[in-house]
């Protein structure tokens, strides 16, 4: 695996409290990496260190093999969770300001701003002041200001908060487009559906420590404990025979169907399960129950408490 960002044994303290406790991460080049953790887990602390806003008290962060320092600022784009823009400034002045801060000359900045405003079809907004824009519009401008300088490493902290579904999809497409162009993206969120949809890798942080990381598919496989779901058209007159199998749960699901969750024993194969229940001719479904990231997250975080 070719890592673009390597976090090696990083510690950060506030007063005597350890908010990053020996954290190590490998973020592969050109991937979207999900960072998960409950509130107060230390995500923002880690992200701020990655964005060069603060420095680790111990340990090192590498970007493309070099120790991360201020000279890498221009390669990084950061959209914090708590974000905002100058209310009294016009959209175009605002974007030019951010482009210049990232090292663009005035003319380059103008070119870039023009390109993005055309791409997102917001040319008409250029002279408007930020305070005249809706929240969704402002979020769009905020997003442009983050990626305007073509960062190689993009940090997005809850990027979809405040977006309606249409704009959220637009930003999602943009994120995928940037990924396809080779941008490495760190994506921090509470929304597991976004993680599963966008990320290949993830890490869970809890109470300042990394409690899990790896490829999402592998993690889900790792947490798979041989549970299967069987679905039947509900019929109160049928008596099911479960004697060979351990029934974990029996319930009527959202579609009004009878659903059994069964965990296979060591010596049992999925085929045995299927053979046994196939005799009930009201059976309509059979599937592996691979845990969702949400389940794994809740499981890990609550077991840690």
């Amino acid at each position: 695996m070719n890592s673009y960002i390597s976090v090696e044994n990083v510690y950060k303290y506030f007063d005597d409290k350890c908010v990053s406790n020996n954290i190590s991460l490998e973020i592969p080049q050109g991937e979207i990496f999900g960072l998960l953790g409950p509130n107060g887990a230390g995500k923002t602390t880690l992200i701020r260190m990655l964005a060069t806003i603060t420095q680790p008290d111990k340990g090192t962060i590498y970007i493309n093999g070099e120790a991360l320092s201020e000279k890498h600022i221009k390669q990084i784009g950061y959209m914090p969770e708590e974000r905002g823009l100058y209310k009294k400034m016009s959209v175009v002045d605002q974007l030019l300001f951010f482009a210049e801060l990232k090292g663009y000359s005035r003319n380059q900045a103008k070119e870039e701003v023009k390109f993005w405003m055309n791409k997102l079809e917001i040319v008409d907004w250029a002279p408007k002041k930020m305070e005249e824009l809706s929240k969704g519009m402002a979020q769009k401008i905020q997003f442009i200001s983050t990626i305007l300088h073509k960062p190689k490493f993009l940090i997005l902290d809850e990027p979809f908060s405040g977006f309606d579904p249409v704009n959220a999809d637009m930003v999602k497409d943009l994120i995928i487009e940037l990924k396809n162009q080779g941008t490495t993206i760190l994506f921090s969120t509470h929304r597991m559906d976004n993680i599963e949809e966008l990320c290949n890798h993830l890490a869970i942080i809890h109470q300042g420590e990394k409690i899990l990381d790896g490829k999402i598919n592998e993690i889900r496989q790792q947490f798979f404990n041989r549970e299967y779901a069987l679905e039947f058209i509900e019929n109160e007159n049928i008596e099911y025979d479960h004697n060979e199998f351990s029934l974990i749960q029996s319930q009527i699901n959202n579609f009004g169907r009878r659903e059994f969750t069964i965990q296979l024993k060591e010596n049992q194969a999925p085929r045995d399960l299927l053979n046994h229940y196939a005799k009930y001719n009201n059976m309509i479904g059979f599937k592996e129950k691979i845990p969702t990231i949400h389940q794994i997250f809740v499981n890990k975080v609550t077991s840690k408490k």
């Binding site: 701020r48 964005a51 060069t52 806003i53 600022i73 990084i76 950061y78 959209m79 914090p80 708590e82 974000r83 905002g84 823009l85 100058y86 209310k87 951010f98 801060l101 905020q142 200001s145 983050t146």
Partner: peptide, 9 residues
């Protein structure tokens, strides 16, 4: 206005 975190990055 929470602009500052964007700027100090």
């Amino acid at each position: 206005n929470r602009i500052v975190e964007v700027i100090v990055s």
